Computed example of a mutant assay.
Amino acid sequence: MSQRKIARSLDELPSPEELMSVPGLEMMRSIVSGERAGPPIGETLGFAPVEAEEGRVVFEGIPQFEVANPLRTVHGGWYGAILDSCMACAVHTTLPAGAGYTTLEYKINITRAIPLGVVVHAVGIAQHSGRSTAVATGELRGKEDGKLYATGSTTCMILRG
Rank of each mutant, 00 (worst) to 15 (best):
Lys147Phe: 03
Leu83Pro: 08
Ala113Lys: 15
Glu43Val: 09
Asn69Phe: 06
Tyr79Asp: 03
Lys5Ser: 15
Ala122Arg: 06
Ala134Asp: 08
Lys143Val: 13
Ala52Thr: 03
Gly161Ile: 14
Ala97Gly: 13
Ala150Pro: 10
Ile41Lys: 00
Arg36His: 02
Ser21Lys: 07
Ala90Val: 09
Gly138Glu: 05
Val118Arg: 10
Leu104Lys: 10
Asp11Ser: 15
Pro23Asn: 14
Ala126Tyr: 04
Ala99Pro: 10
Met1Asp: 02
Glu12Gln: 14
Arg112Asn: 03
Val58Tyr: 05
Pro63Cys: 03
Pro96Ser: 14
Asn109Thr: 13
Gln127Lys: 14
Ile110Leu: 01
Arg131Glu: 01
Pro40Asn: 09
Ala136Thr: 04
Ala52Trp: 07
Gly34Ile: 05
Cys86Gln: 04
Val135Ser: 07
Ala113Asn: 14
Thr154Asn: 08
Glu26Arg: 08
Ala52Cys: 09
Glu105Arg: 14
Ile114Cys: 07
Tyr106Lys: 12
Val119Asp: 02
Ile110Cys: 11
Asp11Asn: 11
Phe59Glu: 09
Ala88Thr: 07
Gly138Ile: 01
Thr155Cys: 08
Thr155Pro: 05
Pro70Thr: 07
Ile114Met: 05
Arg56Thr: 06
Arg8Val: 15
Gly42Arg: 03
Gly117Gln: 04
Cys89Tyr: 14
Pro49Thr: 02
Ile31Lys: 10
Gly117Met: 12
Cys86Met: 03
Ala122Phe: 05
Arg160Val: 13
Ile31Ser: 03
Leu116Cys: 09
Ala113Gly: 08
Thr154Val: 12
Met1Ala: 13
Ala99Glu: 08
Tyr101Gln: 12
Arg141Asn: 04
Val57Glu: 01
Asp84Tyr: 01
Gly46Arg: 05
Gly146Ser: 10
Thr102Ala: 13
Leu45Phe: 15
Ile158Leu: 10
Arg8Phe: 00
Arg56Leu: 15
Ile114Arg: 05
Ile110Tyr: 09
Ser21Trp: 09
Lys147Trp: 07
Gly42Glu: 00
Ala48Pro: 04
Ser33Phe: 03
Pro39Ile: 07
Glu12Trp: 01
Gly142Phe: 11
Asn69Arg: 02
Gln127Val: 13
Leu71Ile: 12
Val135Pro: 00
Leu19Trp: 12
Val91Arg: 07
Thr94Asn: 03
Val50Asp: 09
Glu12Asp: 07
Ile110Val: 15
Gly77Ile: 00
Val57Thr: 02
His121Glu: 12
